[in-house]
Amino acid sequence: MKGIKSLVGNDHTKTIPVIQDANFKKLKQTLLKEIKRSAYVYRVDCGGCNGCEIEIFAATTPVFDTERFGIKIVASPRHADILLFTGAVTRAMRMPALRAYEAAPDPKIVVSYGACGCDGGIFHDLYCVWGGTDKIVPVDVYIPGCPPTPAATIYGFAMALGLLDQKLKARSHNEAENEKATLKHTGIPLALKTIIEREARLLSGYRQGGILADEFMAVLAKSTQETVDANLKRFLSEKNDPRISEIIEILHHKALAFMRG
């Protein structure tokens, strides 16, 4: 700041994850290979909105039933093989989280759960958060989502235990020579397109409206004047949803009114 001499550096706003022992990796591999019993999970809530906790418990209910794989939630970090960190790591929760980490017996697997745990999520730029589990402890598996669904949770656990493989791959694209974005529904006049898009969003909300307008225009584009009614009817019976029928009907009226001028 101008005119104000800073008394301290900015080290206190930076955090360095706990340093891992060199043999840790090997130990972890043996743990994964030799684990002939249930894997115990301890959850550490580092200041999330509790959405993640609810999904974790949903994953342990009979519907998803993580106990099929022997994954059990335990009440103490001293019993844990897997530590599950949720939340964006608030300042106040940093020490308790580190204590839970130290209390868990080695070798332990650390899972970062939810958008908050992975990278701070929507809280990433608050003054009072460190912004993610990997800022304080070394993380083995990231499970993104806000919150991750129970199925995504199971997938993440299976990955942590080495049962399933990672699907996601980093991707980088460079613009090719003469690469061009294509215009959609070029057969429909722009003014009519605007009317349809606007009306659909007005009737059914933004994202749904966009999708409906797109589908409606796709039907329009591939029909002639004679077949348009039959095509729309087929489309609506496929959807079999009275709400969509009503919206499409209104859109159709608007389009007809436009065509008549």
Binding site: D140, V141, Y142, P148, E175
Partner: peptide, 19 residues
């Protein structure tokens, strides 16, 4: 697609470059 868990954080990023 919901199976997004990764062990390597770099795989959670996608990028595209434009001129």
């Amino acid at each position: 697609e919901f199976e997004l868990a990764v062990t390597n954080k770099a795989d959670l990023y996608e990028e595209a470059n434009f001129t």
